[in-house]
Simulated assay, not measured.
Amino acid sequence: MKDVLNEVETYLAIIFRTTVIYLVIWFLFRMMGKREVGELSVLDLVVSIMIGDIAVLSFEDLEKPFVRQTIPMFVLAFLQMTLALISLKSVRFRNFMDGKPQIIINQGKIDEKAMRKQRYNFDDLLTQLREQGISDLNVVKFAILETSGKLSVIKSAQEERSESVETPYPLIIDGEIQEANLDKIGKNHFWLRYQLKKMGETNIKEISICGYIDGQFYIDKNETKK
């Protein structure tokens, strides 16, 4: 009978702690401000993960005082709100904590140095452009990688033309010919090299990305490899 009572007491303690921790986390995140998951800064993400870990630890040892286990959560929330307030007042501190938006495409030209600095590759770029319904790199005037990891795109004026519905095919990515995409359009690398040669492009290794859509090429060269 005593074992049964102990078991019931343990379950009641777990239910109580779960309820309280849920309310505590809800309160803390309300105090920290509303943001979508994709818009969390590095600081927000770190605090969120740590609060979650602390919450899990509070269930591992039910013998420890519950209040003592929730104190670190309030401390983290207080630190986050304090640092967020400082960030509002100081641009320099905000840039230090969250980083700065990085221009990836400037006036239609891809900045490979900026991409390397952000550890951002061409597959990431193409994926995020496709997510915004952009299949032709020629229509992109500016692309800015925000501190949240989201890509903001400003289209060029001549984008007024109808957007192509054909599938874009990257034929060269970071100096490497994409044979699979050449097969999809029924071409080979000899055809590609010939087309590039007609456009004055003789060194494939200097090409960051070469796209092909609607019979038109988009070529961006890697200035750092010249």
Results as ranks from 00 to 15, higher is better:
residue 1 M to T: 14
residue 2 K to E: 15
residue 4 V to C: 11
residue 5 L to E: 10
residue 8 V to W: 13
residue 10 T to P: 01
residue 11 Y to R: 12
residue 12 L to A: 15
residue 12 L to N: 00
residue 15 I to D: 00
residue 15 I to S: 15
residue 16 F to V: 09
residue 16 F to W: 13
residue 22 Y to W: 10
residue 23 L to P: 02
residue 23 L to W: 11
residue 25 I to R: 07
residue 26 W to P: 04
residue 26 W to V: 14
residue 27 F to D: 03
residue 27 F to E: 04
residue 28 L to M: 13
residue 29 F to W: 10
residue 30 R to V: 07
residue 33 G to Y: 10
residue 34 K to T: 07
residue 35 R to I: 14
residue 37 V to H: 02
residue 38 G to K: 03
residue 38 G to V: 14
residue 40 L to N: 05
residue 40 L to D: 04
residue 41 S to D: 00
residue 41 S to Y: 02
residue 41 S to L: 07
residue 42 V to W: 12
residue 49 I to C: 09
residue 50 M to H: 06
residue 52 G to T: 00
residue 53 D to S: 15
residue 53 D to R: 09
residue 54 I to Y: 03
residue 54 I to L: 12
residue 57 L to Y: 05
residue 58 S to R: 03
residue 58 S to A: 14
residue 59 F to K: 04
residue 60 E to F: 12
residue 60 E to R: 15
residue 61 D to L: 07
residue 63 E to F: 11
residue 65 P to K: 08
residue 68 R to S: 11
residue 68 R to W: 11
residue 73 M to C: 09
residue 73 M to S: 09
residue 74 F to G: 04
residue 74 F to L: 10
residue 75 V to P: 05
residue 78 F to C: 09
residue 84 A to H: 12
residue 84 A to N: 13
residue 84 A to I: 03
residue 85 L to A: 10
residue 91 V to E: 15
residue 99 G to V: 08
residue 99 G to M: 08
residue 101 P to N: 02
residue 101 P to K: 06
residue 104 I to C: 02
residue 106 N to E: 15
residue 114 A to Y: 08
residue 115 M to V: 11
residue 118 Q to H: 08
residue 119 R to S: 14
residue 119 R to T: 13
residue 119 R to G: 02
residue 122 F to I: 13
residue 123 D to E: 15
residue 124 D to N: 14
residue 124 D to G: 01
residue 124 D to H: 02
residue 127 T to A: 07
residue 127 T to E: 08
residue 127 T to R: 11
residue 128 Q to V: 02
residue 129 L to F: 00
residue 130 R to V: 01
residue 133 G to H: 02
residue 134 I to V: 04
residue 135 S to E: 03
residue 135 S to C: 05
residue 138 N to P: 02
residue 142 F to M: 01
residue 143 A to R: 05
residue 145 L to R: 08
residue 145 L to A: 03
residue 146 E to F: 03
residue 148 S to L: 04
residue 149 G to I: 03
residue 151 L to I: 06
residue 153 V to C: 01
residue 158 Q to D: 12
residue 159 E to V: 09
residue 163 E to I: 06
residue 167 T to E: 10
residue 170 P to V: 07
residue 170 P to Q: 02
residue 171 L to H: 06
residue 174 D to I: 10
residue 174 D to S: 13
residue 175 G to F: 09
residue 175 G to I: 08
residue 175 G to V: 09
residue 177 I to L: 05
residue 181 N to W: 06
residue 184 K to V: 10
residue 184 K to I: 05
residue 184 K to L: 13
residue 185 I to M: 05
residue 187 K to T: 08
residue 189 H to D: 15
residue 189 H to I: 07
residue 192 L to A: 07
residue 194 Y to D: 13
residue 198 K to E: 14
residue 199 M to S: 05
residue 199 M to K: 15
residue 201 E to G: 07
residue 201 E to W: 00
residue 201 E to S: 06
residue 205 K to W: 07
residue 208 S to R: 01
residue 210 C to N: 03
residue 210 C to A: 15
residue 214 D to M: 08
residue 215 G to T: 01
residue 216 Q to E: 00
residue 217 F to M: 02
residue 218 Y to H: 12
residue 219 I to F: 12
residue 223 E to Q: 15
residue 225 K to R: 13
residue 225 K to W: 07
residue 226 K to R: 14
residue 226 K to H: 10
